[in-house]
Design a protein around this nucleic acid. Structure first.
Lengths: 196, 196
DNA sequence: CCTTTCACATACCGTTGGTATGTGAGGGTA
DNA sequence: TACCCTCACATACCAACGGTATGTGAAAGG
């Protein structure tokens, strides 16, 4: 009775499951995490977990959505700080490179995501969260004549894949020079799109 | 006594496990495949599987190595048919795009691979099988002055990731126009590297 | 022919994801 | 305030799976 009623407690439990699930999925990987560990860390039982989520994969999906939202938000914030559409594209891409090197993002979003949910569903989530912004930015640049007119979907996937893999590599790299070199190479890649 | 001795039978059993494992991993995905299904399809028991492999992940690793060898061989063959170093790079990249759309390659090498073996080990295998060739081709082109001098590792990962994701997308795409558009976009990307 | 080895088969175990059922504290209603 | 229904879990349980320990019969070696 100290704080709010049932709804309060419900949300609190759900957040605890998401928090501990995310932490364990990120550190151990999806396959190596047992639900017993998750519920023990969250201070509840399996009954609570199955009351909030449909199963292990559903919990992971909820965690993944949360991670993707955070990444998309960070990328969008960085991009929107720029005025020029072209500068927004470049800044957004580099912001994604940064975000992708975080351990949570790396393991949950880039490594386990496609395998657990299947590539198609993972793609749908990624599309809704961040790839859509990339496609929109490219479309705007094409309409403005900055980039040669061409189908955006292939370009989106090529760039998205390039950044995903690069982020994965950078996350395991110790040489800080690699980040600068990758940014430079990515910039050159993007720059090549400007000419007709 | 009809055919060769033990060694013959041994190899036969091993190949049967690899064949059925590959088929099931490709169609159902690693997580959805039970070892009982594999051994039943191969006509042996779990004893045989654990006599040949250290476990489920080891079987998957052996299957993955086989898939990667095939892809690398196909890519190398296509590339080596070209005389010009630049033409070899372009032909090799497009051959990889083709190979990556095969269902086996898609599921085993691109989706489950990183999650099952971990990204680092998956990368090591990929490096040994195909990414090394890409890096060598880029190095040769840099030494020849065709591409501006720059670190090859970032470039390799950007291109490798771009092609992986593109292949994944193309595998699920129904529009045959997408393949042509992707090849065109990839060609433009590669072309952009020529200028200094 | 005898023995050893090898390539499996059989039987079994612990753990894990998932389910079915119990329960006690809200919280609306009279 | 007494009642009671609902909801947010806890408890108890199960089937299936990966993995292991042990048995076995045929092939190689002497």
């Amino acid at each position: 009775m100290r704080d709010g009623g049932r709804a309060r407690q419900r949300e609190q439990t759900r957040q605890a499951l998401l928090r501990e699930g995310r932490r364990l999925f990120a550190t151990l990987g999806y396959g190596a995490v047992g639900l017993s560990e998750v519920v023990r860390a969250a201070g509840v039982t399996k009954g609570a977990l199955y009351h909030h989520f449909d199963g292990k994969a559903a919990l992971f999906r909820a965690v993944l959505e949360q991670v993707q939202e955070e990444v998309a938000e960070e990328v969008a914030a960085t991009a929107d700080a720029q005025d020029d559409p072209w500068a927004r594209l470049v800044a957004g891409c580099q912001a994604f490179l940064n975000a992708g090197t975080a351990p949570d993002v790396r393991q949950i979003m880039l490594v386990d995501g496609p395998a657990v949910l299947g590539w198609a569903e993972w793609r749908a989530l990624d599309e809704a969260a961040s790839a859509r912004h990339l496609a929109e930015a490219l479309t705007a640049l094409i309409d403005a004549g900055t980039i040669a007119r061409q189908p955006v979907a292939p370009l989106t996937h090529l760039l998205s894949g390039a950044m995903n893999e690069a982020a994965l590599w950078l996350a395991g790299s110790e040489d800080p020079e690699d980040l600068a070199a990758t940014r430079a190479a990515l910039s050159r890649m993007l720059e090549s799109l400007r000419a007709a």
